[in-house]
Design a protein around this nucleic acid. Structure first.
Lengths: 153, 153
DNA sequence: GATATGTTAATAGGTACCTATCAACACAAG
DNA sequence: CTTGTGTTGATAGGTACCTATTAACATATC
């Protein structure tokens, strides 16, 4: 009676995808929590560490989330002392986001945790398989992105 | 200057995975909203349509979410008149979840929307590629599930 | 039968996303 | 200089997850 109950018949990679994604973030977030970080913050931390302060909209584009999602994320990060919002002298609408010292110091350890967990997820995968998966995922992403635009979602 | 800004160097299928998943649910949810349904409800609707009323814990297991997530989902579904909670005569702790007529009627259209969107996501994929993707995703899922158990996350 | 141990569900509190909308400023065209 | 249009960010409100905890009942054991 160990037969898996299925809610659909044909192989549906999209259902597994959702579960894998949630399990992945659960594992990463559990480890990052001890550092006072979270997975969603990593794109922001990494790109700001590499270069100069950036406006919010640019960070949203890089992290591939909508602008209000980024605004809220930055609110939490500001509250936790990870980023500062500095007035942009060249545009009074814009405020440039910069890392605090505290965030700079924690960043590397956080990135390492992320990479280690990616390696766990890809355990037993050959280089060829990783590349193949990457290509397949990119094609799915493009298909969906095109549909989203055309369908005005 | 169209070069994509990257926050990591090596191919990281997990980042694309998150974005693809969010885009997918956005497209599906936008269409289901007109029916008064949501993507997260589909596993519940489908499995209850196929068989008899089930307890909450069983539904959580099938939908692969935690028990409180299922409890809240069922709260919303009950509020929207999609499910009913009936006392279980054999176990006073348990309440069996059953579909309403309204939900039964909408279910098929919802399932069709889901399947159509899966087909869009997999546009241009050969049967072999879909199977390959499915296998790769299952291996990732198993790797992560094992890590989650071993690491007590 | 009381007591300890599971099991089922509910609730509190938080993160992370989304859409829709609005406010503030920038800037080009009339 | 004003007026329209674009851009940047903030806010409101909702969904869907999560962990941690508690309440209520079930069951096995002594």
């Amino acid at each position: 009676m160990d037969r898996q109950l299925k809610t659909s018949d044909s192989p549906n990679p999209l259902r597994i995808l959702g579960h894998a994604y949630r399990t992945f973030s659960r594992i990463v977030d559990a480890q990052l929590r001890e550092l006072g970080l979270a997975m969603s913050q990593l794109p922001v931390l990494i790109v700001l560490k590499q270069g100069k302060p950036l406006p919010q909209a640019e960070l949203a584009r890089i992290a591939r989330v909508e602008q209000p999602s980024m605004a809220q994320l930055l609110n939490r990060m500001e509250r936790d002392g990870l980023v500062e919002r500095l007035a942009d002298p060249e545009d009074k609408r814009s405020r440039l986001i910069s890392l605090t010292e505290r965030a700079s110091r924690r960043m590397h350890k956080g990135k390492a945790i992320m990479e280690a967990t990616v390696n766990i997820a890809l355990q037993g995968f050959s280089t060829a398989e990783i590349e193949q998966l990457d290509k397949l995922m990119q094609r799915i992403d493009e298909n969906l992105e095109r549909a989203a635009e055309e369908g005005h979602y």
